[in-house]
Write a protein that binds this DNA or RNA. Sequence first.
DNA 1: TGTTCATTATGATTCAAATCATAAAAAAGG
DNA 2: CCTTTTTTATGATTTGAATCATAATGAACA
Lengths: 198, 198
Amino acid sequence: MIPEELLIRYGAHNKLYRKNEFIFQQEQRAHFYYQIVSGEVKMNNYRENGKEFIQSFFAAGQSFGEPPLFSDITYPANALATEDSEILCLKKERFIELLLENPKIHLEVTTAIASRLYYKAIMASEISSQEPEHCILRILDYLKEDVYKLTEPFSFRVDLTRQQIADLTGLRVETIIRATKSLEKKNEIKIKKRKIYR
Amino acid sequence: MIPEELLIRYGAHNKLYRKNEFIFQQEQRAHFYYQIVSGEVKMNNYRENGKEFIQSFFAAGQSFGEPPLFSDITYPANALATEDSEILCLKKERFIELLLENPKIHLEVTTAIASRLYYKAIMASEISSQEPEHCILRILDYLKEDVYKLTEPFSFRVDLTRQQIADLTGLRVETIIRATKSLEKKNEIKIKKRKIYR
DNA sequence: TGTTCATTATGATTCAAATCATAAAAAAGG
DNA sequence: CCTTTTTTATGATTTGAATCATAATGAACA
């Protein structure tokens, strides 16, 4: 999102994270701005009962973990590579400098953070709703419309496992499986070869 | 948060909203940056079953409703005055200009948005946890430590009704009442004259 | 000061998602 | 190719928060 050459000019270095390696962990202090060059990153929490809650996934070109760079707070969740990933790391102080000296880029960063806040606001309301089917549809529509910009019915092939949808919504796999079947009956989604289409 | 005189220099105007009056509603497009001069604002969603979900409260000095100013998205929730409120409104285009021309102020705006994302991330995980007591403690601790910067045990007097805590967590009043009583027994909170202290 | 309304309180019952158990189907790995 | 692991599937049971009902208490207000 921030041009790589600009990041490097401010002193960013490239780091390789292996699949399942943590980039940072919950409660830690933040020292770097992270931007994915290649690979994929997952932000999550592990709850007492061992259940996982996925805050979100991040793909190549996206940054993550900015909020604690601006205030005196620690990471609210873990970040780990879900596949081998190349990540540009820029020291917090230099990142702030970069923002102050590049207003247009700063605006893009703000836009990215704002967009994640938007997603969280939507999901907070849905997760609290105790209506699994509605909650699933909402996350699918968010991905379809806001992330992948698709409009055609059933043009969005969902590349998430039932388990991942469960961890994103705070529900259980069995509930997702049953709810998606019910949604298929209601013609809200299609399921072909176990893949969900919305 | 943005100095009032600066906002006014960029063309902001003062508007009075009566108690319970909407400032904007879910699904609407965003045209203004809003900053509270006096009063209080609530962001919420109304769900099918009539249940309310409170995204958050905003007090004097705080801004709200920025995310849709940066992208082509609509408001994910409603905003309404919970008491008569004076609010500075600045046209979207002029707001962006202000940010681009005032890097330090821009950074403060980014910081505010990032801090709200932090709160949402925490709450998303908690709400999904299906553990009412834990969820209540987390929101109280967030308010106590991150908002009011208190450290002494039971020094935080919670000024939320049980119903408001319910609407902030997606739980029901009765559940909050029972959970808080249980938390009092466990010495996690104190209740004096029906007020919760943490 | 008495009346109305909002808030807190508590017990009984319902209900839907979690949990448990088990298995089939598909994908990954050697 | 066979073996192992992951993912999807489905039925039976449990459980805890929601719901329903009802009341006491406190705050607001005329």
